[in-house]
Amino acid sequence: MKIVDVRATPVAVPFVAPLRWSLGVCTHAVRTVIEVETDDGIIGVGETSGADAAAAVDAHVAPLLRGQHPMLTTRILQALGAGLNLPYTLPQSVFAAVEMACLDAVGRSFGVPVHSLLGGSVRDAIDVCAIVYYRHAAGATTDEVLDEEALCERVGDLAAATGAPVLKLHGGVRPPREELHLLSLLQERTPGARWRLDPNGAWAVATAREVARSLPETRVDIEYLEDPVAHLEGMAQVRRDSPVPLATNMCVTGFADLAPGIRLGSVDVVLADVHYWGGLRANQRMIAVCDAFQLGVGLHGHAELGVSLAAMVHLAAASPSMTYAIDVQRFDLAGDIVQETLPITEGRLAVPSAPGLGVELDHDAVERAHRRYLEQPTGDRIEDPRPASWGVTIPVY
């Protein structure tokens, strides 16, 4: 079994409506789909964030993969890291997509699901955290975002439709006091649900400390506060007197961040990610470090399409200490690239038992998404922190 071809396709899938967060406006989920084909006709698929991976795969990765056995992912990733005569280092997201596609191919060849290749599943289903963004009305300009009442109505419908036990608000968009009030309203619409608040590092340390201390007053069932500030030292300062746990997917994003984050006492929960940690097995190594230092582990999601979502479920299934509900954002997407997206039932995603990742590409949908990417290749966001009419020009309070 040898790899004979590698294909990388940048795609863009639109959101139902533009999403606003602390760093701008997102209009599309922009991803790279990777297909690894073997000499016995098996095709393994991977997906990663952004579109930059496509050019790197075509120019530098594909030649190194041809002739390799897809099972030998350690050797493949080592070759990618050390065998490239490049003036830059390949992003970890490229490693992640390559490994994902190789594991999918191996699973299909052996007739086993990917979680079996990661050590085996320890659970049959995975709890879901439904991600909630401020968003604009469909077709509207970026001058106004969805008002509080409309957002509360949408969240109530989302909670009822999915049964998600946890929801997360991406804040840092409006002044913190307004967002704490909104959280209270959202809790009323979702009785029994837990909430996470994630301003994506938008706040100053003093503001974050004040918000953390104020959270119990809202009477919202807060599971954790995620990335209130954008650096480890600031997170440590906030955490010293925070009555709620702090989580991060922005301050601890690689192995070089783990030691200082642990030493400073910056976080309670580290969020894994199937892309930027460099693959599923790299995430398992990171989780082992967190286990050693008794840190909680969750799983970050952002604009994942069907292939990445499946990979997230396999990782969570094979990770005993990943007890937090995994982030899922698929509810804002106007389409997908797989024939059947994994269903959510009563707030949970069933762990696939089919060979490989358990999903099949919809090649017509991939082609449509690729054409859409070519029509607007600038990416998935407009860097416009806030409309000028709000009278605020920087995302820090």
Score class of each variant (00 low, 15 high):
Gln78Phe: 07
Leu65Gly: 05
Val11Leu: 01
Tyr224Asp: 07
Pro216Gly: 10
Ser319Ile: 01
Thr218Phe: 03
Thr341His: 13
Gln329Cys: 05
Ala350Phe: 11
Gly265Pro: 04
Pro387Cys: 10
Glu144Gln: 13
Thr27Gly: 14
Asp332Asn: 12
Ala29Asp: 00
Val45Cys: 11
Met312Pro: 04
Phe293Gly: 04
Val220Tyr: 05
Ser266Thr: 09
Tyr324Ser: 12
Val61Tyr: 00
Leu167Trp: 05
Gln92Val: 06
Met312Lys: 10
Thr253His: 11
Pro191Leu: 02
Ile34Thr: 04
Gly50Ala: 00
Gly163Tyr: 01
Ala82Cys: 08
Pro113Asn: 00
Pro176Ser: 11
Lys2Glu: 15
Glu375Val: 07
Ala272Tyr: 11
His302Val: 14
Val98Glu: 09
Asp380Gly: 00
Ala56Arg: 02
His60Leu: 14
Ala137Trp: 10
Val145Lys: 08
Thr323Met: 02
Leu182Pro: 11
Thr73Asp: 06
Ala54Leu: 00
Thr345Lys: 09
Ile344Ala: 09
Met250Gln: 15
Ser116Lys: 07
His231Phe: 11
Pro87Leu: 04
Leu103Arg: 12
Ala318Thr: 11
Ala256Cys: 11
His302Arg: 14
Ala334Leu: 07
Tyr88Trp: 15
Gly301Arg: 11
Gly391Thr: 11
Val252Tyr: 06
Glu346Thr: 12
Leu169Ser: 05
His115Asp: 15
Thr207Ile: 07
Asp241Glu: 14
Val4Trp: 14
His170Thr: 10
Leu299Asp: 00
Ala311Arg: 03
Tyr88Cys: 07
Leu186Asp: 11
Val229Lys: 00
Arg239Gly: 03
Pro216Tyr: 09
Glu226Thr: 13
Asp147Glu: 14
Leu258Gly: 04
Ile222Gly: 09
Cys251Gln: 09
Gln78Arg: 09
Glu99Asp: 10
Val4Phe: 13
Asp198Phe: 04
Pro63Phe: 01
Glu99His: 06
Asn200Met: 01
Trp390Asp: 15
Ala160Val: 06
His314Gln: 03
Ala350His: 13
Arg177Pro: 00
Val112Glu: 05
Leu349Pro: 06
